[in-house]
Design a protein around this nucleic acid. Sequence first.
DNA 1: TTGTAAGCGTTATCAC
DNA 2: GTGATAACGCTTACAA
Lengths: 319, 319
Amino acid sequence: MTVSRALRDDPTVLPETRERVLAAAQQLGYRRNELARRLRVSGTSGMVGLVVTNLANPFYAQLALGVETFCATRGMKVVVSNTGDDVERERELVDDLAARRMDGIIVVPAGQDQQHLDPARLGGVPVVLAARPPLGIDVDCVLLDDFNGAYEVTSRLVSDGHRRIGFLGPPAAWTSAERLRGFRAAIAEAGLPLDDTLVRGDQREVAAAEAATRELLTLEDAPTAFFCANSRNTIGAYRALRAGRLQHALAGFDDFELADMLDLPVRLVAYDTAAMGRQATELLINRIDAGGSESAASRRVVLATTVVEYGRNRPRGRR
Amino acid sequence: MTVSRALRDDPTVLPETRERVLAAAQQLGYRRNELARRLRVSGTSGMVGLVVTNLANPFYAQLALGVETFCATRGMKVVVSNTGDDVERERELVDDLAARRMDGIIVVPAGQDQQHLDPARLGGVPVVLAARPPLGIDVDCVLLDDFNGAYEVTSRLVSDGHRRIGFLGPPAAWTSAERLRGFRAAIAEAGLPLDDTLVRGDQREVAAAEAATRELLTLEDAPTAFFCANSRNTIGAYRALRAGRLQHALAGFDDFELADMLDLPVRLVAYDTAAMGRQATELLINRIDAGGSESAASRRVVLATTVVEYGRNRPRGRR
DNA sequence: TTGTAAGCGTTATCAC
DNA sequence: GTGATAACGCTTACAA
């Protein structure tokens, strides 16, 4: 008991006793067992779980860094798990994290069915969603302004005079659908026809995006510009265009390194991913501190996006 | 007690009893407390700690994915921490991880002083180093073949006839020093003079690398080729070269996306980062399973690198 | 087949 | 100021 107090700098411990305890601890290499301590004190782990679909993707890596950085300021650790876009795996993971008594869990949900993410089913662990909104459950979330980002950048293509614009995106996910919606809104607003043969929304990887772009390019009435719903697709499209004469316009969601070094001006929808991680953590910590007591209305934070234009003021040909 | 057994599928529990228990658990949303269980059973957390310098860097993100994936197969979770290259922070982090009773810790050490990474000082937690070797402590590690990678790719520059080759790299870290050593070996072997004015080893970020390259280019007897010790420097060098006439040869350590799309052939030293994470985890788990009993001689695994050549068979000018 | 007692390493509480 | 006791939620060992 005295050891416990000494290590906690409890003032009721005699300075001399404290010294002796510290010396002994030092010498024995004693280190308080946080597992046992937390079992007694809070019943929770003092960690937050982070569940993403693919850690190797820079987006999730930056998100993770944002979460980790914010958590570190509160002395919390982050347990990172990868789903590989598998909803069943996601279910197992959050279940495990709940069993390990995470203080809270941040999830980038993989699918439509989110019932397993309901805090009520997780023994009351607070949950915050990132990048995609809750569907059928009532939790906080941080989103990007997917619609407006896509709308803005597509509008610029339109005002450059493009009348046939191809859309390339990954399957399903809510974000992709929102970006398609923004894309369509910009086209509709300009009074242009919506041609669904120019919409290819099934490319998860660069190679698939490149192939899809090539296909669109062979159309009789091929697009003169492309909007890509994520960086995988933008890069794939660029690869296809580069094999040709680079006479098309390219725009996309997600900023990426070297975008300004491409042989083609590119417009990209950029945003602060780490900020998204921080925001999500902030929402989560608010819930944790509230202790699930009076469950406030769920919050939805939407982060702004900006359009960056790369390569506009560079000569189009090689120097 | 019966609940404990039922949840564990203990065959001594009457099937009917088991059903009743499961039903009740389901209904109450009961979930076994892993913290308490582990306190009793193993005294450890069933998690491994991973300490890196910068999660947002694709190298560490892929490493983390490799670790996470391997751990997942063993039902272990990964606690990820970021040091931001701060050795003092690294010390605090491993200390915390030890207090939280990680089963083991994988570290990419930030500095020269590694005393705080000695398992003996961490209450016996197994430690494995990744990317950089142990200095003054006796632990397993997984390294890249930094020397040979650099040697090989530099040799190719030499055999192309380059006689003055610039070196660009980040400060300090062991890897960078090894790569410089490989670079020098290739030059010395060819009987070329070693000109230290062409060695710039202090650029951590792309902008600094770009500036350093520009400086080297203004030298009276400027290099005709560059070897860069990491991707930050390769990209910085490329930016500097692209502003000019792109008549220099470029080589570097680390593969990166879009390298094959640059307006300049590039030779890169590539390797499997996720494999490094897997290997590190494997070494760690071996130690964990050994239980610190008979401490076997420490192992050092060196992963091979390959040289990839991008843009060699593409027309040099724009189509 | 089920239940009881003890203990994992802490800390809150109350006595000394 | 310090120590004894109980309890956090679980499981091992043993009894019923």
